[in-house]
Design a protein around this nucleic acid. Structure first.
Lengths: 365, 365
DNA sequence: TAATTTTGAACAAACGATTGTTCAAATATA
DNA sequence: TATATTTGAACAATCGTTTGTTCAAAATTA
């Protein structure tokens, strides 16, 4: 193997013994490699990017360059490349709380898809705050991500509308029905209806609902199913039985306390909890009060978890396809990022079906 | 407000009405801003970076620039900046499985610390594979992250040693006792000892241990405590009671099956499970077999979860300070990245204490 | 008024890569 | 042999910032 160096040529033997070999080991950039091998940066760049032949770089030269790059354990600076190409091969993923297994599970699949497609992923936790959500978006834009997946807090949307004008964007979990941004979530109406219908068929007519954040799409869908089931069975909706205001354990705990405190005659016999975290809080409250499921209260919960079937009383749950949502979200984003398709791409929202798991937490009255 | 434009000056009124105002709204880069305001990129850069006065840029000029930047909703391209500054304000975080709530909880705090310190964070899931772990490291290096936090798979370390020579690095959860890379994890020996000691004090002498990946630091520490407790009570360690080979639900399930299948006389009366995921698998197996905790088996588990107290039988657990580990890890990384301190920084590993939660899953014999 | 100092901002190179274009040498053709 | 063509790689501009240096104009001093 021979390497050219300004007006000089040395053979491989000399090369290995020479200082150049040591230099090669230190080569970090195209410039370094150029200096050492004697070829220019453009030649090296083209070779290593696999377009050498197209630019008539000889097989011989290419071989030398590839060997040198291997020897140097060379890899491109993706920042510089992103700057030049105006494409960074990165995406952003914003979740309200990564420690919540719901979002962690989705993150797992988003990450896997991203990895598979050579994208790196910036994780942003918006800490259940729209302000942080906004600043996370700014952060991602400064880093010139190619696209963003957001699980929005769900109360404001203007900043997302603005974002969508500038960057490929997919919303997951929550979305804004009246706004034209692609989203993927689960269709919670149907199984909410079914599960409440089931409670009613077991003789329950006084059914409380512990909700999360009001007027978020998920909350609305679940309540829609709940209300429809009541209505179809001629049960008047009682606003006093719609309790709570956040998807938190604390909210579940407090709501349960409130329910426990109701006069026995008016006390609900069943509870429809809109998230697994809320349910854990409620269960904690009941446990502390010495109340049993389903003897004292029947309960059904949104969000299936690994432990749902293993709790003191195995829980009836509605499971969402978190993994599928993560996968689908990345694929939709990829479609947007793919400049070919982008032109006349008209994406809409996707509603995936949920799954019902009937277990022992419901008592027949 | 007046803006200079090559040999011309216009007042604010004209400006707003003019095309320049529209241009300003479109300004994305320093160059755009320079063209519009008439100042050079260096002047604008210095002003917006707060070092304008130091470089004798007049108050008047600075004010104009700042206003224009605000009007344009200007923000720097952090990739270009990172290229020039050789500091990207990004870190990488590699976990074996982000859908595992143990790592998700840590991620939550790592992210929070990073956000607080203006760092963006690349999330990499190594999928419990050393190969993926290695390629994740390569990915992060190509992106020129300022530092990396790794929760290693735990079997190989050479690539981490190599990495540590080039990039600030902190290991979390698992580490390599014989290798000099800073780490933060919990000291699992002590509470493992205590909890097994407790089992013994309740009359158990035949105690199985369902382990995770052999020869990982966490597994070793936990078994060390287990063995020491046995020894201190003159109970011979029986290798047949050390079962399993991964931190997975499947492993827990299979190990439990194996235990169930043992002849009654030799069957352990208690089980020490080395992770919550393993425990869930084991519980599933017991539930399917109609076996009860603690009637048929006493069980203690590593890793406290929100649901631990709410399971069919509230679990006795050893809780690790995941959040604190995340926070501490980032801080240690920050110290390494801080070039001032870096010089004579000699970091060692940190072992945080665990916490014991005694609950009903242990029967006195 | 002339010389000196201060002020204010422009100039230009660099970070590491990509890419359209140029251009000399080698080969083919007339 | 003279000309035309092909081959192979170099050259130079660019992406968006930062920063050491230069330099004219204004202000100060002698």
């Amino acid at each position: 193997m021979k390497f050219k160096r300004k007006n000089a040529t040395i053979n491989h033997y000399d090369f290995v013994l020479s200082q150049y070999y040591m230099e090669l080991k230190e080569a970090k950039t195209l410039k370094d490699l150029a200096k050492i091998t004697g070829f220019t940066e453009s030649t090296i760049s083209r070779t290593l990017n696999g377009i050498g032949t197209k630019y008539r770089i000889s097989k011989d030269t290419q071989k030398k360059i590839i060997e040198a790059a291997k020897e140097a354990d060379f890899s491109f600076n993706e920042n510089a490349r992103g700057l030049r190409l105006k494409k960074t091969l990165t995406i952003g993923f914003i979740v309200p709380d990564i420690s919540n297994s719901f979002f962690a599970k989705m993150a797992s699949l988003v990450e896997r898809e991203a990895r598979f497609h050579k994208y790196a992923i910036f994780l942003c936790d918006s800490d259940n705050s729209t302000e942080v959500e906004k600043s996370s978006i700014t952060l991602l834009q400064k880093r010139k991500v190619d696209g963003i997946i957001v699980c929005p807090i769900g109360l404001e949307s203007e900043h997302l509308v603005k974002l969508y004008k500038e960057t490929p964007l997919v919303l997951v979990d929550r979305y804004f029905p009246q706004i034209d941004i692609p989203f993927v979530t689960s269709n919670d109406v149907l199984d909410s209806y079914k599960v409440v219908q089931h409670l009613i068929s077991k003789g329950h007519r006084n059914i409380a609902c512990i909700q999360g954040v009001e007027h978020t799409s998920q909350n609305d869908m679940r309540i829609e199913g709940y209300k429809k089931a009541l209505k179809d069975n001629d049960i008047a909706f009682d606003p006093k039985l719609l309790i709570g205001n956040s998807f938190s354990e604390e909210n579940g705990y407090n709501a349960a306390q409130q329910i426990i405190g109701m006069p026995k005659t008016k006390r609900p016999t069943a509870i429809f909890s809109l998230s697994s975290i809320i349910t854990l809080g409620a269960l904690k409250s009941f446990t502390e009060a010495g109340l049993k499921i389903p003897e004292d209260f029947s309960i059904v919960s949104f969000d299936e978890q690994e432990y749902s079937a293993l709790l003191a009383t195995p829980l009836t749950t509605i499971g969402q396809p978190k993994e599928e949502m993560g996968t689908k979200a990345f694929k939709m984003l990829l479609d947007q990022m793919d400049s070919e398709k982008k032109k006349n791409l008209k994406q809409k929202g996707v509603l995936l079906p949920t799954q019902l798991n009937f277990r022992d937490s419901i008592k027949a009255l």
